[in-house]
Design a protein around this nucleic acid. Structure first.
Ligand SMILES: [Mn+2]
Ligand SMILES: [Mn+2]
Ligand SMILES: [Zn+2]
Ligand SMILES: [Zn+2]
Lengths: 143, 143
DNA sequence: TTTGAAATTGATAAACCGTCTCAAGAGGAT
DNA sequence: ATCCTCTTGAGACGGTTTATCAATTTCAAA
């Protein structure tokens, strides 16, 4: 029973609007991507290499970037690595990252968001984007 | 009247403790660095390339990283560029960055800091570091 | 002051991560 | 099925930072 994915439709619409084509690779990568919360291009590459050993790394990058343009993914730069965040079913959020095991926890805090706006206004700025990342040790990594 | 700089002493102590040497280059770079609030290695390189003997780019990087270890500087990754933040006379702070002109404004907001701790605790984390950057347009860049 | 072991320097190679190039292949409107 | 356009995969390339290494400098001890 292959249920019609909302995200596949989002992609199809984006492709249509921009005269792009729905390829086997794009379907494959989207299906795999939607199983993840956050994933790097490299990890996606290795994961898919098992299925289709000829998927090029450049195609992974191109396709994940396409998903960003379509609003399905968002590139997040944590420390040195870039994680593609599956935002198809999420609103804005920020992250807690464990420096021990790499676990990524998402959170939303509207009070912090409000205070950010307040700080910006106080300094004459209008915010376009922001980054908030908390790095530390999760309970398991502290034993 | 060459007043004795507190930062030069901090550097001297750090060098002594680690069996490192005080070189003409390190003095030169420190003096120039202390005139800045935030600066990239590349900018520092160009600023100093005109003077004196010729300073290699590798030396600039090595020395700025040395300052970080000595607690005089802190590397901050804004967008794609790495700014070395002169923290010799500052406590913890975060930044507002204008995407129009590149202006960097520092701010401290203990209420945000407190809420960050609260979020971390709620998720079983103990924070080691954090990044908070607000990107937007300053009043001049909005006209 | 001279000496010499150890640290430092500058030039440049290399690593890293992602994008660009381009010839060959695939998509899809007609 | 045709044919124009878009996409793909392999590898070259680019920007930024670090590693390498022979020559030079520092500085403590003689
Ligand atoms: Mn996320
Ligand atoms: Mn600062
Ligand atoms: Zn952990
Ligand atoms: Zn501005």
């Amino acid at each position: 029973m292959n249920k019609t994915l909302k995200e596949m439709d989002v992609l199809r619409q984006h492709l249509e609007k921009h005269q792009l084509k729905l390829t086997r690779q794009r379907e494959l990568i989207l299906t795999a991507f939607l199983r993840q919360e956050h994933i790097t291009a490299e990890a996606m590459y290795h994961q898919l290499a098992k299925k289709d050993p000829h998927l090029g790394l450049a195609t992974i990058y191109r396709t994940l970037n396409l998903f960003c343009e379509a609003g399905i993914a968002q590139a997040r730069h944590f420390g040195t690595q870039t994680q593609y965040d599956n935002i198809s079913h999420k609103g804005h959020h920020d992250h807690l990252i464990c420096t021990g095991c790499g676990t990524i926890v998402e959170f939303e805090n509207c009070e912090i968001e409000r205070l950010q706006e307040e700080v910006a206004t106080k300094n004459g700025f209008v915010i376009q984007t922001h980054r908030l990342e908390l790095y530390g040790l999760c309970s398991r990594c502290r034993h």
